[in-house]
Design a protein around this nucleic acid. Structure first.
Length: 437
RNA sequence: GCCGCCGUAGCUCAGCCUGGUAGAGCGGCGGGCUGUUAACCCGUAGGUCCCGGGUUCAAAUCCCGGCGGCGGCGCCA
């Protein structure tokens, strides 16, 4: 007797006897029979227990989320969800659960209670669908980078200094020596690794101790980062748009059922194809000013501006050429701006903004390869050279033009799934308030 | 860090403005029902109205303080 998934059972001919196992999703009792919707990793199938058989005594006791293994016969019925159901002849194993504390009303409300019982809520159809899309997103990212000759590498989580100047770090006690920090980006380590492998990528958690309270921020998020030797800002644009397009297409191929369960508008995703529109910061400023917003050159774009800008496009866009003062020190300045003062210079940096108001999902650009230029920028930013000693060191021994970017994988999942909040893009989100379950 | 909102049954919420001793739906339990699709119908149990103080004859309701949570901005992926 073979154990089959709900999905496999639905594809079998009538009369097959199979074993299925899973959890009770719904139960409906009648005088002569009991319907149990059984949930497993692949979906849902309806079990029918006739009241005459002794097994129905067990079925009567089943609560929502009770678990069981049954043997039964596949039978077509137009009234069954999926067109087929299993007429149970034997219960091989079961566990009667306590009353399940989550109901449809809580699910609709998307309440904080669902965050308290997250360890149980991940069984829901919604989280099931999201987790399966997320699985495919990670798969597609690996697939893309590997197919393009990038080596996968792994960088430390414990680090001794900051990557971003302003971003806040989580401090961790490290034996009896000075404190270390949780990494906020693998970028500096990837930059070191290109001198060995030329094109590298990693998917790893990054940590930000920013007290952000928005639907787009986590304190622990999954970061897909890539770094390329012999590359510039244009290469970052090309690789990032190819990557995003590949991921979206893969999800559209493999996860249609999940997307429709999430009520995602597929047309929006089908529009995603390279090249993405390229908008310079200068153009963005004049576009925004002509839309009635009052933005001065030099300011970073806020959430309102990002939203206004992306509303003009149906697909993700590349926004490039940010002012140097609005970006981290390691970004390379436009060569023609080199003699200008810091506040008038632009960087060879680029962000990808997702449409439908989802905003920034990628940040990257060309890095400074000249050690003297890097030192100057560190000083201009009021940072200490000694804090970046090994990073400067990379430029001393056969420096090369190089560029890279970081993709917020949770934000990508959020946008692809059309979620209201980033914390639903992963099973156990960490934000400023929540570290459990 | 700044601004706003919320805390009542296991869960989702109403009641609060205008003070008078606690309500609904779901879930639980019991019963009914010839195939349900978040089934339906009848019955029933279930409460530290977040905590502390104040005003009042009387506080879930008004005032003050605290705690917890949610949303938004800034910052970023």
């Amino acid at each position: 007797m073979q154990v089959v998934s709900s999905k496999e059972a639905l594809s079998l001919p009538d009369g097959e006897t199979v074993i299925v196992r899973g959890w009770v999703y719904r139960k409906r009792e009648f005088k002569d029979k009991i319907f149990v919707l059984l949930r497993d990793r692949e979906g849902i199938i309806q079990l029918v227990f006739p009241q005459q058989i002794p097994e129905s005594q067990i079925a009567r006791k089943l609560n929502i989320e009770s678990s069981l293994i049954v043997e039964g016969m596949v039978k077509s019925d137009v009234r069954a969800p999926g067109g087929k159901e299993i007429h149970v002849s034997k219960v091989l194993w079961y566990f009667i659960g306590e009353p399940f504390p989550i109901n449809e009303y809580a699910a609709q409300a998307d309440s904080e209670y669902l965050l308290d019982v997250r360890h149980l809520w991940i069984r829901s159809r919604k989280m099931w669908a999201i987790l399966r899309v997320r699985h495919t997103v990670f798969e597609a990212i690996h697939e893309y980078f590997r197919s393009k000759g990038f080596y996968e590498v792994h960088c430390p989580i414990f680090v001794s200094s900051a990557v971003e100047g302003g971003a806040t770090l989580f401090k961790v006690r490290y034996f009896d020596r000075e404190d270390v920090y949780l990494t906020q980006s693998a970028q500096f380590y990837l930059e070191a690794l290109i001198f060995s492998l030329e094109r590298v990528y990693t998917i790893a958690p990054s940590f930000r101790a920013e007290p952000s309270r928005t639907r787009r921020h986590l304190t622990e998020f999954w970061h897909a980062e890539a770094e390329m030797a012999w590359a510039g800002m244009r290469d970052v644009m090309r690789v990032s748009e190819e990557l995003i397009t590949h991921v979206v297409r893969k999800v559209l191929e493999d996860r249609l059922e999940e997307l429709s369960l999430l009520k995602r508008n597929l047309e929006k995703l089908e529009l995603v194809k390279p090249p993405f529109p390229r908008v310079s910061y200068d153009e963005a400023i004049s576009m925004l000013n002509s839309m009635g917003l009052d933005i001065k050159w030099g300011a970073d774009l806020g959430a309102d501006e990002e939203r206004a800008l992306t509303q003009k496009f149906d697909t993700p866009i590349h926004l490039y050429g940010f002012p140097s003062v609005a970006k981290a020190f390691y970004h390379k300045d436009y060569p023609e701006d080199r003699e200008k003062p810091l506040w008038e210079r632009r960087t060879l940096s680029v962000d990808v903004l997702a449409p439908e108001g989802y905003g920034e999902i990628v940040g990257g650009g060309e890095r400074i390869e000249d050690p003297e230029e890097l030192r100057r920028k560190i000083r201009e930013f009021g940072l200490k050279e000694e804090d970046y000693q090994w990073y400067i060191d990379l430029r001393k021994y056969g420096s090369v033009p190089h560029a890279g970017f970081g993709l917020g994988v949770d934000r990508l999942v959020m946008w692809i799934c059309g979620l209201d909040h980033i914390r639903d893009s992963l099973p156990f989100p960490r934000d400023i308030r929540r570290v459990r379950p």
